[in-house]
Design a protein around this nucleic acid. Structure first.
Lengths: 221, 221
DNA sequence: ATTACTAGAAGGCGAGTAT
DNA sequence: TATACTCGCCTTCTAGTAA
């Protein structure tokens, strides 16, 4: 991301463009940032081209919204500055709801290539299945922050049939009670609002969860 | 602060230059930031000149430390991003009822001096009128709490005829659905149990409100 | 009122190089 | 090794202006 984009990203975030489309004319942005209207226009065009923002034209006016990529670049900065200004990094609390996935989780979790690493690196033998959670809208930014935590890396491997990708794990406390870990495949971008949790227990049973139930996930630093 | 300085400020903060003098060669900075050694050198010279950093030469090496001004410009960014990423946990719920005011609201809301600011600072063009709400007795204390939230300031102005006072705005969610803002004139002449709400819609119509109807106002932090 | 194109001016960039 | 100067190139700027 070019440095000249950051003031605009900041301003847009300040206007609320991180969670909705806001009206932001090139003239107003220009004045707020002490640049010319022409520069504001050019920068918005460029930022849209590289996928940092999305715009809708509504007659004479435009509305602007940050894309995932735009939000991510802000989160990266925020995560860095958090480490500077709040050295004792606090745990991160995510509010989520349960949903049913495709059940692939149990297949992957049963593979020895992964299980050995979970035991060695996380210290527990995970239940062969994952709990699918959808992050609530207002916590979406925190997902990016989570990725600023230092991850526990699970390496990919291959057998005769195919290769299996790596993943990052983040230790977590589920509903303030049960230890587990959030697992994020290194490639394969899921929906940005979805996380998967593994644990030494069958979380659904242990916590009596059904689809739609709320689950608190505290990412531990 | 020039945008081109921010990547260097970020990098220096990451290296710990916010609380001590750290060794940071122009070559290393250049590689880390994907710029030339020459640019890194020039930027450091400039940043020192404008008082963002201090440098000591130690033989062939230099050490760099952020000044108060440098740290402050980072803190400003951090504070802005905090507001974006930190949860709106302590939202404040006010239970109110609709009543009819004197209709002055539409006059003030139609003034360009105010409208421009609403667009710039709230991100929407308000309907030219305000919704008058009376806070229910048991919620009166919450009105003070609201004023503890950090307000969005609308500045006063003057035209040929008279002067117009400033106001504070607080983002709000009306009946858990519609975005708007509570607006509080800085020189308040209202009873303490009254608030006015502005929104990009005509709230009365949109929500089918008549006098005496209950309205929930959630003040967003 | 908007957004955004063109074109000339201003200034940032990095290669070469001095120290 | 360092840092930082000059200088030519090129990106980015804004004024003017079209749509």
């Amino acid at each position: 991301v070019k440095p000249s984009y950051t003031p605009i990203l900041f301003k847009l975030a300040e206007l609320g463009a991180h969670d909705r489309s806001v009206r932001a004319s090139t003239g107003e942005l220009a004045k707020a940032l002490s640049i010319s209207q022409q520069s504001a226009s050019r920068l918005l065009v460029e930022m849209e081209k590289v996928g940092l923002i999305e715009r809708q034209r509504q007659g004479r006016y435009q509305t602007v919204q940050l894309t995932e990529a735009g939000l991510e670049s802000l989160a990266e900065i925020y995560s860095l500055l958090s480490r500077v200004f709040e050295p004792a990094k606090k745990d991160l609390m995510l509010t989520t709801t349960v949903f049913s996935g495709l059940g692939e989780g149990s297949y992957y979790m049963s593979l020895d290539g992964y299980r050995k690493q979970f035991r060695a690196k996380l210290g527990f033998d995970p239940f062969p299945g994952t709990l699918n959670l959808r992050i609530q809208g207002e916590d979406l930014g925190k997902r990016k922050m989570m990725e600023g935590f230092s991850p526990i890396e699970i390496e990919g491997f291959a057998n005769e049939k195919r290769t299996y990708g790596g993943a990052y794990c983040y230790r977590a406390l589920i509903n303030e009670k049960l230890r587990g870990a959030v697992i994020v495949p290194i490639r394969a971008h899921y929906g940005e609002d979805v996380i998967e949790v593994i644990a030494p227990y069958q979380l659904r049973k242990q916590l009596h969860l059904k689809d739609g139930d709320a689950v608190g996930v505290k990412i531990l630093s």
